[in-house]
């Protein structure tokens, strides 16, 4: 895999103003991420992981510092342009799924495509179905979120994240609301996407989960305190074979 720099942040800082009180969520993060990496970000609660993910996802703006994505200075972009970047380059997976209620799995996955350049109805559906196929729940396309298990909902969310062929995936505690086996299943899915060339950045609290990544970064008090490669990541698909089949839905 050729190593091109996908993400570079320098002195990235975020300060939240709470009345007279300032919260220094990030105190200057210098980090480069190559294309095709699988990164796990760890750290205690309140150490700034989510804040950093939000900045990487262009969901929020830094107080100071620079952020280059694909060689483009994202921190200087207008919000119009940022919207386009979010739509075309970034896929998000959130801890609490954030699916639209009363909306089928298929329609949820279609959502990013609705806001892309003109795309025909047929093409949109076939692309969304393809994404659902990748995450393995094509057969639940017509189900509503409340008819799906947590693991299935997270799969729908992942399908939505990958449907527009983004440059990288951001996942903030994607397994936080799932049981052990389902978590490993979701990790197997991320590993599969990674194997196909996708860059994946995920935040987790669990060491077991971080072991599936190729690089583990640890935050503390808004700073990176360790950044280590994980030369021998565990294989989630292999692990699943040794795990008891607890839930019968998949």
């Amino acid at each position: 895999m050729s190593s091109t720099t996908l993400i570079r942040t320098q002195g990235l800082t975020k300060v939240y103003q709470m009345g007279d009180f300032e919260v220094h969520a990030l105190r200057g993060i210098d980090l480069s991420i190559e294309q095709g990496e699988f990164i796990a970000i760890m750290g205690a609660s309140g150490s700034g992981k989510t804040t950093y993910m939000n900045l990487l996802g262009c969901l929020d703006r830094p107080t100071a510092g620079s952020y280059e994505l694909d060689g483009i200075a994202v921190h200087e972009m207008s919000s119009e342009k940022l919207t386009k970047v979010r739509n075309e380059k970034i896929g998000y997976v959130f801890q609490s799924f954030y699916l639209l209620p009363r909306t089928t799995a298929l329609e949820n996955v279609e959502l990013p495509l609705l806001y892309t350049r003109n795309m025909g109805h047929k093409e949109r559906i076939s692309q969304a179905m393809e994404a659902l196929d990748v995450v393995g729940i094509k057969d639940r396309a017509r189900h509503f979120p409340n008819q799906l298990s947590g693991g299935q909902q997270q799969r729908v969310a992942i399908a939505r994240a990958i449907v527009n062929n983004p440059v990288f995936l951001l996942a903030d505690e994607p397994t936080g609301n799932l049981d052990t086996r389902t978590s490993v299943e979701v990790m197997a899915l991320f590993q599969k996407l990674h194997a196909q060339g996708m860059t994946v950045i995920l935040v987790t609290h669990e060491h077991d989960i971080s072991r599936y990544a190729n690089r583990i970064i640890t935050f503390r008090d808004g700073l990176i305190i360790s950044d280590k490669p994980n030369p021998q990541p565990r294989n989630a698909a292999e692990d699943l074979k040794t795990m008891p089949e607890l839930d019968l839905d998949r």
């Binding site: 119009e80 919207t83 386009k84 979010r86 739509n87 075309e88 998000y92 954030y98 959502l111 806001y115």
Partner: peptide
């Protein structure tokens, strides 16, 4: 509910 919906839509690429 609507505000959440707006958040989700804007996160995946809807303009204001």
């Amino acid at each position: 509910e609507r505000i959440k919906e707006i958040g989700i839509r804007m996160a995946v690429g809807a303009h204001k």
